[in-house]
Amino acid sequence: MNIPYKWREMRFPDSNLVSLLYKIEPRSGYAVDIGCGSGRHVKLLNDIGFNAIGVENDEKQLSLCYENKIDVINAALEDVTLQEKPVLIVAWGVSLLGNVTDFAQNIGRFDATWLVIDWRNQENSFYSAKDTIHHKNGLITIGASGNHLAGLNYRIHKKNECHIQGYDRIFIQKVTIDRQENGLQQVASWYQTIHKLTS
């Protein structure tokens, strides 16, 4: 996948993810950050009490993990094998990627006690941009001129689609950011959820 350089420079944890993680008790045990990028959230998970590893398959992101001394598995979500059952899986920026086949089934197969996920929604500026291509399979190819995501395939989710079979969704919030990018007003918007394995 052609990951925007802007993503490769991310060094600090997402404050929204931090607040969601503090809703989970206890904060300990084996945790996995799927699509961990540079490893910023693996470090966060370790810092707050988990024993965390990352999963990543982008070569440039992997090299950053190695530089940052992050324990990482080189694999795609659909191919990864975990050596033990995780207490927590974080999937921040994964559900939206068009190259992940059947995200919900793949993320649920690990039977983690907790899932924390973000999902892009239809309020993003690129969704309604006239040069964005809407495919029949629910994917879009971002064509939004001036957007650093142009050319990527994304999956957009409605609120009622933010669920994982076998899990209760116990929390959902919508986060929307208005910002200037390349002289254009851009809106970025996500649903962010916490799920707990059904007893």
Rank of each mutant, 00 (worst) to 15 (best):
N2G: 11
I3P: 00
K6M: 09
R8Y: 02
R11E: 06
F12H: 12
F12D: 06
S15A: 11
S15C: 09
V18I: 15
S19T: 12
L21W: 00
K23M: 15
I24N: 05
I24Y: 09
E25G: 08
D33H: 07
D33V: 09
I34V: 15
I34C: 12
C36W: 01
S38M: 07
R40C: 04
R40N: 03
H41G: 04
V42D: 02
D47M: 08
D47Q: 10
I48K: 04
F50L: 08
A52G: 07
I53G: 04
I53E: 04
D58F: 06
E59L: 12
E59V: 10
E59C: 08
E59F: 08
K60A: 09
S63P: 00
C65W: 00
Y66C: 11
K69V: 12
A75V: 11
A76K: 14
L77V: 06
D79A: 13
D79E: 15
E84T: 10
I89C: 15
V90Y: 05
V90W: 00
A91G: 09
V94Q: 01
V94L: 13
V94M: 02
L97G: 02
V100E: 01
V100H: 01
T101C: 11
F103A: 03
A104G: 04
A104R: 06
N106Q: 15
F110K: 12
D111H: 15
D111G: 12
A112R: 02
T113W: 07
W114C: 11
V116Q: 03
I117Y: 07
D118F: 05
D118H: 06
Q122G: 14
E123S: 14
S125W: 01
F126I: 07
F126L: 13
F126G: 08
Y127D: 02
S128W: 07
A129V: 06
A129N: 08
K130T: 14
K136Q: 11
N137C: 04
G138E: 00
I140Y: 02
T141H: 04
I142Y: 01
I142T: 03
G143V: 08
S145M: 08
N147E: 03
H148A: 10
L149Q: 05
L149I: 03
A150P: 00
A150K: 15
G151T: 05
L152Y: 00
Y154Q: 05
I156D: 01
E161G: 10
E161Y: 05
H163D: 13
H163I: 14
I164L: 11
G166E: 02
I170G: 09
Q173A: 12
K174C: 12
K174P: 06
V175P: 02
D178M: 11
V187E: 02
V187Q: 08
T193Q: 07
H195N: 10
L197M: 13
T198S: 14
